[in-house]
Design a binder for these strands. Structure first.
Length: 395
RNA sequence: GGAGGGGUGCCGGAGUGGACAAUCGGAGCAGACUGUAAAUCUGCCGCCUUAAGGCUGCGUAGGUUCAAAUCCUACCCCCUCCA
């Protein structure tokens, strides 16, 4: 099968009243209907699940991580094993992140300059560096379907000057990545940066759009800024992105954020949240998230979510799930992950068919009306505490 | 019968005159988690109270002291060793 990487995406239908679009992304491992959600499988595995299970859940595309795979087992080994698909026995499309996010999330261990990123391995402390060119080479050798440019992400409180600097560097790196990228079967997506500053975001989107990438990602959001800001920035950015190219909102999201994102014209999402949160006992339901380890589930007969068709809900009671979590039984993590990914998968399906039938606006209102979101204030406070904890432990 | 050790909050277990409502674990309760260094982290956890504050409290009952989980006396219970 041959694909032309400049025409990798088709918008099949748009929505009156919102920016939502139904589309199709062509890859070497099959076409993917969008809007789509990619579960995160950094280390060549979506934690706790097999490829068969992912498929049964309805997952069509996953995300892998260059940073992790480079450190372990190493790009050489995966290349020798026939590429990441073969290595992990996943036959669907894979997108890899370039490692740009790790620069940001592991910042005490990382330095950035124009040449690239210098970082310390979280595994053994050894020093490594990624240039934009190396990031491309590694991803090409992993043999995945969509690859990402190396970018520099900035945190929420960062001064505008610093954010601009990172954005401009991201642009220079994007150009170098484009130049380096020789495997014309793997579309390379650019990443828009610019923090929470609309004018920077506009500038970033315009600059990158002019470089004519086959797809565009929005990076550096959902990092602790107010939701209102997130959506304002997404809106600002998508307005400047080409209509006929896929838009990928990196690191988002939660069910409610996905719906919000779709309504602003986002086609692709990836996020660690559904799977991570599952492992910690928080399961999605149409009414919002529920921590199954709560005492109220101790004696609840019947499934956690009456409307769910996933293996977990079809087979086990909420009380049993509660018990597994209380005991720290390994099965708990798997069952919860199955449920959350199925929830997201059905959400995406629902979104797509609503766009198809021209009812997305109603779908969105209905979903957001029912889905109780987590407390924003608690979210921000705890995020700060978590970051403080990280800082102290790394000192 | 003799000798020794010990009884602390739901549990384990520190503390041996003031800084103790009592370190620390565990359990329990609640919350968070957004391009995964996350099967992680945070808070609460005697009673009343939103809080300030108040009340009760370290086997039981007395006592010494300005002050006792900590010292003294008696009693109750548990464990180990000897007979």
């Amino acid at each position: 099968m041959t694909i032309k990487i400049k025409e990798v995406f088709k918008v099949l239908k748009t929505c009156d009243g919102t920016q939502a679009r139904l589309g199709e992304l062509a890859t070497l491992h099959g076409a993917v209907s969008t809007p789509v959600f990619l579960p995160v499988g950094s280390q060549g595995t979506v934690k706790t699940l097999t490829p068969e299970e992912l498929q049964a859940i309805g997952i069509t595309m996953i995300l892998g991580n260059t940073y992790h795979l480079y450190l372990r087992p190493g790009i050489d080994i995966i290349e020798k094993m026939g590429g990441l698909h073969n290595y992990m026995a996943w036959s669907g499309p894979i997108l890899t992140d370039s490692g740009g996010y790790q620069v940001f999330s592991l910042s005490p261990l990382c330095r950035v300059n124009d040449d690239g990123v210098i970082f310390r391995s979280h595994i053994d402390g050894s020093e490594h560096s990624f240039s934009p060119e190396a990031a491309i080479e590694f991803q090409e050798r992993l043999g995945v379907d969509v690859i990402m440019v190396l970018d520099e992400c900035t945190s929420v409180g960062e001064k505008k000057m610093r954010v601009r600097e990172a954005m401009l560097r991201t642009h220079r790196w994007a150009e170098r990545c484009l130049k380096k990228h020789v495997n014309q079967k793997q579309p390379l997506f650019a990443i828009v940066q610019g923090g929470v500053f609309p004018e920077l975001r506009r500038q970033s989107a315009e600059t990158l759009a002019a470089m004519d990438f086959p797809g565009y990602a929005i990076g550096g959001l959902s990092l602790g800024e107010a939701k209102e800001t997130t959506w304002q920035i997404v809106q600002t950015t998508t307005e400047k992105l080409p209509h006929n190219k896929p838009r990928y909102l990196m690191g988002v999201g939660s069910p409610e954020d996905i719906v919000e994102g779709v309504s602003r014209g986002i086609d692709m999402f990836d996020c660690a949240l559904p799977t991570r949160v599952a492992r910690n006992g928080a399961l999605f339901t149409m009414k919002g998230r529920q921590n199954v380890d709560k005492s109220m589930f101790k004696t609840k007969e019947g499934p956690l979510d009456d409307n769910c068709d996933c293996y977990t809900c079809q087979t086990f009671s909420a009380a049993y799930l509660h018990h597994l979590f209380k005991c720290g039984e390994l099965l708990a993590y798997r069952l919860a992950t199955i449920h959350n990914l199925r929830f997201i998968s059905r959400l995406m399906q629902g979104i797509r068919s609503a766009i198809q039938s021209g009812t997305f606006l109603d779908f969105q209102k209905d979903f957001l009306g029912r889905y109780k979101t987590t407390n924003e204030a608690a979210r921000i406070t705890q995020k700060q505490k978590w970051l403080d904890g990280q800082r102290n432990s790394s000192d």
